[in-house]
């Protein structure tokens, strides 16, 4: 009981921390990586809540596809900035 409670509290704290860091960090690339970390932690949270269906969807869509889209956008932004005169 106490071990799982400690894990849940740690998970909740890590979720809040990664969410805050993803919003507050000035480096866009780092923010995207933190967003993916947030998505994976949220997957763990859904699994802890005994909702494996939502955990699967969160891991595949929330962390995976959205993360890849955001990383691609960061790459496009970066190369355009470099290419601009």
């Amino acid at each position: 009981m106490s071990a799982s409670l400690a894990f849940d509290l740690l998970l909740a704290a890590a979720l809040l921390w990664s969410a805050w860091r993803a919003l507050a960090t000035p480096d866009i690339f780092r923010a995207v990586v933190l967003f993916i970390v947030f998505g994976l932690l949220l997957t763990l949270a859904w699994a802890r809540l005994a909702a494996p269906d939502i955990a699967l969807a969160e891991a595949a869509i929330g962390a995976g596809l959205t993360g890849a889209l955001l990383l691609d956008a960061v790459g496009a932004l970066g190369s355009r900035k470099d290419g601009a005169p």
């Binding site: 269906d53 699967l56 969807a57 869509i61 596809l65």
Partner: peptide
């Protein structure tokens, strides 16, 4: 647990 949405996401 599983289904069309998760399967589609893996395909994507």
């Amino acid at each position: 647990p599983g289904g069309a949405f998760q399967a589609g996401a893996v395909l994507a």
